[in-house]
């Protein structure tokens, strides 16, 4: 792939959600200036879009930028060209993840994966399990430490009946968990077909 030849841009247009908008960016930098997280990540949306046009496939897909987006929609509201920037950022994140290029240890990516598997199992988010999975993501000792740090909050939640320890053993399910799973599988299938993924 050679620089500025648009191959990667075409790939993004075909395979990334809202990717066909990338070419419409006029490089004004308003998004970069609007993003509350701007200084904390590798590339601003403006830069990401320019990198796509410049054909920097590897750099874009391994960037942590799109994982840091908090979906505040500041940029979308301000973009004079009306690009759905937030959606593109998430589209790029998904795409990088599916290709296995997303930074493995990136915290938001890991949280997203955990969240997704937690949710799709029963059709409901099991908050207790989710919290424990997140606490123990870096090993048992680290998990215990985090657990200890948060003990007061946990006890108060228990007292207020906002947290039920039995959820660990008998988790709530939605009425038709199987149905939900089938629905999600269908959606995945449609998306795979549309975006050209094998499975």
């Amino acid at each position: 792939m050679s620089a500025y030849q648009g191959d990667f841009l075409k790939e993004v247009e075909a395979r990334v959600e809202e990717g066909e908008w990338v070419k419409m960016c006029m490089q004004c930098g308003v998004c970069a200036g609007s993003c509350p997280f701007g200084p904390h990540w590798e590339h601003s949306p403006q830069k990401i879009f320019m990198m796509i046009r410049a054909g920097k496939r590897e750099e874009v897909l391994t960037s942590d930028a799109m994982w840091m987006c908090t979906s505040c929609y500041n940029c979308v509201v301000r973009c004079p060209r009306k690009l759905p920037i937030t959606q593109i950022m998430h589209g790029l994140a998904t795409y990088a993840h599916r290709l296995g290029l997303a930074p493995k240890m990136q915290p938001t990516r890991r949280f997203s994966v955990t969240f997704w598997s937690n949710l799709t199992r029963t059709g409901r988010v099991n908050e207790l399990k989710l919290v424990l999975q997140v606490y123990f993501r870096n090993g048992f000792a680290a998990g215990l430490k985090e657990f200890w740090n948060m003990r007061r909050v946990g006890l108060r939640l228990l007292a207020a009946k906002r947290m039920n320890p039995f959820e660990l053993v008998f988790p709530h399910r939605c009425k038709d968990a199987k149905g939900i799973q089938r629905m999600l599988a269908k959606a995945c299938e449609i998306e795979n077909r549309k975006r050209g993924f094998s499975q």
Partner: peptide
Amino acid sequence: DLRVPGNGEDFYRSAQAKGVTFTK
């Protein structure tokens, strides 16, 4: 800098939509 007086902004958008790549 792209400078398109008059109704050039629409023309610029059209060029982008047609896939012309603009590189600062």
